[in-house]
Design a protein around this nucleic acid. Sequence first.
DNA 1: ATAGGCCTGGAC
DNA 2: GTCCAGGCCTAT
Length: 270
Amino acid sequence: MPELPEVEEAVRRLRRALDGRTITALRLLHPALRRRVSSVRARTLAGARVVGVERRGKHQLVRFADGRVLHAHFRMNGDWWVGREGDAPPPHARAVLSLDDGSRVALVDSRALATLALYDADAEPALALGPEPDDPLLDAAALERALAPRRGAIKPALLDQRVIAGLGNIYAAESLWRARIDPFAPAASLSRRDLGRLLRAIRAVIRRATGGRYRSSTIGGAGGTFAARPPRLDVYDREDEPCRRCGTPIARAVQAGRSTYFCPECQREA
DNA sequence: ATAGGCCTGGAC
DNA sequence: GTCCAGGCCTAT
């Protein structure tokens, strides 16, 4: 389940599977993916040697020796399954990469909202992303500059990937709770001190989710493992449950079309 | 800023 | 059946 920490975990598995490998086939199993990459184009990937696997925000890039780039985005539900040729890909496998060592990687995505795109050698994907949360150049002053022109509330601003890359609805809410900031506070109204606290909260939340061990459980055939352990959450999806700081029932509201969870008592900064 | 669309499955 | 979903784009 894919915000930055989950995508990071997935991209590591992808890297392990693809490192040093050559693609022998890419098969697209869902029409929504075939609309983005024609089967003819998918076939041109056979013979491409992988030279790098990168994450930027929630995006994943597989770079090939010929300069082409395969761009993947999980959207709501995507994940990678890694198995062997001959293993049946799991239900909801939407694309399958076959590799020259007899292994297979499948994009598993029940809702079929994930995207794949294949870029030509001279066409670097334009991702329009802000800094990663751990970017040393990102400090309270930089965040203040990014938020200054905004009219809206802080929570939707944190979901804007051009402000910070990788936060999604869960970790944005978690970060605001940790920093005691009201999700409805106007983004431009936050003091530099608030933003320093918010940045530390974001980093702590992401670090906890990324560094924390995920219990892997085998799903389907041999060889496929999934990270199937949701991280510990303080506010997300805890409506009416007691705030872990002050005991006040957690509230839920809709903001920019997304559920927002917060403590109405202790998230009053700004 | 909100609503709708993309897709499908799970909870109720 | 209805509503909801960790993302993101487009239209109003």
